[in-house]
Design a protein around this nucleic acid. Structure first.
Lengths: 399, 399
DNA sequence: CGATTAAACTCGTGCCACGAGCATAAAGGA
DNA sequence: TCCTTTATGCTCGTGGCACGAGTTTAATCG
């Protein structure tokens, strides 16, 4: 198989080695269980190329082919699936009070393998617990593991946690989560990753420009263009909650004034109801939402928050022109609870020429699994590159 | 040179035909006048590949090599320049009262070839005048012309002008500007294109995430990520002026309320001075800026507008995390005239963790040539693709 | 004017994808 | 049951791009 006469090529920047193979793997990922024939058709590959590429990928333990129930006449084709001994990524979702670890093969479907709760505000202890779970999975799967990706309810910049009001953390180094320093460790904001997941695998799959907005404590989200989050120079984009859409008289814990955050979440609802600022704005908001159908004051407060949400979204639509807006967390609950106000305010905030053709505003499909799916997406984005495949091929040469 | 035995390859999606050639042409474009040796080093090409690629491109009239003054010992290399009979793009900048047409070769340096003024509010007449100039250039350069790109002071969506308050136009079809229906005609917003030009060739060249903000009548601009403007599903992104950063009591001509537009331009200055709304907010603002150094009331009004500008920029930095912010048009004038207020408000509007490492805020370098340069950039982005080169090679086979 | 140096040119080779022709595995019909 | 139809997979010769070692070329330096 290796070069019989000359020496093997050294890898080069302009190299073409993995082009076809990558395209095939991306198709498998985009639509788990596609058949080989369908992939070849879609990519415009000749049957000869398809044969060669799949054979190569099988030898490298990157995919397997499973027979598929015959669909009409003709020679039956096979379904492309991740190789049973192929690469895996570990995804972690670290939330306010709990965490989950999952493992996913190249088709990007995570399987939760460990979970737990944490009530500690001590970052080191939490990182220790989660790190043990990750190391455990790494031991179990050996060098099949090619990356670790963490979704966390925190502001992340240059791969480091900068702060988290939800977790009550300041800057924290999560390098301890990597079971092996040679493994890439990716850290991402949970709302950004949830938006990424919606754009790639959720309701907005296929749309080129997707705006994801979620409300938990404050507003988060991301713009996803062509499947990649627009997260800025340091990856700390998507902090939409700190756009000054709100009352300039209100000071935000972030240090600025008039932040949108303060107009939308449980803190806004408490203000409208004349309640003191809630310790946990998220659960406070849920309680008010629950009693809103029967309680006019609660309903009015929810309506005000929904208007605050819709007005900001309208502005972002004006500025960013997304094809779809996806709503996660309390954002969807607020809209559902106060649909009339939400719809009116959204339409009224759009520039006139946009009103004829506004973007669809839809509920996120992945729910609380969004961040976990997003973590898998980013991890696989690293694996499914020329460099990633070359590294895999290097330490696992063909049988 | 063509296949001696087999038949020529048909083009395919996974084809590799233009990979190296495109990389070389992009280098020539990025740094006009680079030497062939430098390009080969940068791209990691062997000298053999460099020889072959340049020969191929020379045969296709895509580049020429000119001897270069010897720089030290060794065999002298050559500079890569656009071929004297190579492809050209036509760029148009259509502004409030005047227009310019330029021609640019593959190095992306436009040369203005025609210009004029228009005081008509009749879109058809303006399009007629400019269209004649374009057709004239097309006749002069024949089939060397491979694209036409227009920068216009208007909202553009899906390649069509939707409205322009500056020009006083409603929806207008500019298809008449194309001298030949087979030529690609690209229409873009002037502020978006100016931002693109700054990010690719101006002060922000090299930065991965650039936020460009310009003020003329209202606020425009764009976010540019990895050299591509983030302009949304229909290309109508960048309308930052219609983010609701302002007084919700003010109604904007766009149909929404509280638009940032109204806090920043000549209309805002007039409000602060108690003047009636100016007919031409741009020249009104310039007059007030001119007398601000000597006139405390004018200075205060300018300061208020500068604060409105800086507060909004701070919010956008929070949300988008750019590495650089470039200021064009009156935005730079406002900052320069009211530096203290601008700086204070900008810093105060940033989230606390960003204050330690804020983005550089710099004046745009290309000035009024920005939109023209941006139009050239988009046109060449279309030419310098596999499809673009294949089309060029098809109708001009090698000598 | 030869030594040195940087770069260009030549040429044999590997690798990927193509595509025509052949082989194969199912369904459908006689 | 057997032949036909249909869709697919496999084999193999070919083209095209880039590599890289060896050679040539055009400059400067001593």
């Amino acid at each position: 198989m290796a070069s019989p006469a000359g020496r093997p090529r050294s890898p080069r920047a302009r190299d073409v080695r993995w082009r076809g193979a990558l395209a095939v793997l991306e198709e498998m990922r985009r639509e788990p269980g596609v058949t080989r024939a369908a992939v070849a058709r879609r990519l415009g590959l000749s049957t000869g190329s398809a044969t060669e590429i799949t054979a190569r990928l099988r030898d490298l333990r990157l995919l397997a082919e499973t027979p598929v129930a015959a669909a009409g006449r003709g020679r039956p084709t096979t379904a492309l699936t991740p190789h049973p001994d192929g690469p895996l990524v570990i995804a972690v979702d670290l939330r306010q009070e709990d965490w989950r670890c999952a493992v996913a093969p190249l088709d990007g479907r995570p399987e939760v393998a460990a979970a737990g709760t944490h009530h500690s505000r001590d970052p080191a202890r939490v990182a220790g617990t989660v790190g043990r779970a990750v190391r455990d999975l790494h031991r179990r799967h050996g060098d099949r593991v090619v990356g670790v990706s963490v979704a966390i309810a925190a502001t992340v910049r240059h791969g480091r946690v900068v702060q988290s009001s939800v977790l009550g953390w300041d800057a924290v180094d999560l390098a301890a989560l990597a079971p092996d320093p040679r493994l890439p460790l990716l850290i991402g904001n949970d709302a950004t990753l949830a938006g990424l997941a919606e754009a790639r695998r959720g309701v907005a799959a296929g749309a080129a420009t997707v705006l994801h907005i979620t409300v938990e404590v404050g507003v988060g989200g991301t713009l996803v263009v062509d499947g990649r989050p627009v997260d800025g120079a340091g990856g700390a984009g998507g902090e939409f909650g700190h756009l000054p859409f709100g009352d300039p008289g209100l000071r935000c814990p972030c240090g600025a004034r008039g932040c949108w955050d303060l107009e939308v979440d449980g803190r806004a609802i408490a203000r409208h109801l004349g309640d003191p600022p809630p310790a946990d704005p998220r659960s406070y908001a849920e309680r008010v939402l629950a009693r809103a159908p029967a309680d006019p004051a609660a309903r009015a407060a929810v309506g005000a928050a929904a208007r605050g949400l819709a007005g900001g979204i309208a502005g972002l639509v004006n500025a960013l022109d997304p094809a779809v807006v996806t709503l996660g967390g309390l954002a969807e609950s607020l809209r559902a609870a106060a649909e009339p106000e939400f719809g009116r305010t959204l339409a009224g905030g759009l520039m006139r020429f946009r009103r004829a053709d506004p973007p669809a505003v839809v509920a996120a499909a992945l729910g609380r699994d969004g961040p976990l799916h997003g973590a898998v997406v980013t991890a696989l984005d690293h694996v499914l590159t020329e460099a990633g495949l070359a590294a895999w091929a290097a330490h696992r040469s063909p049988a």
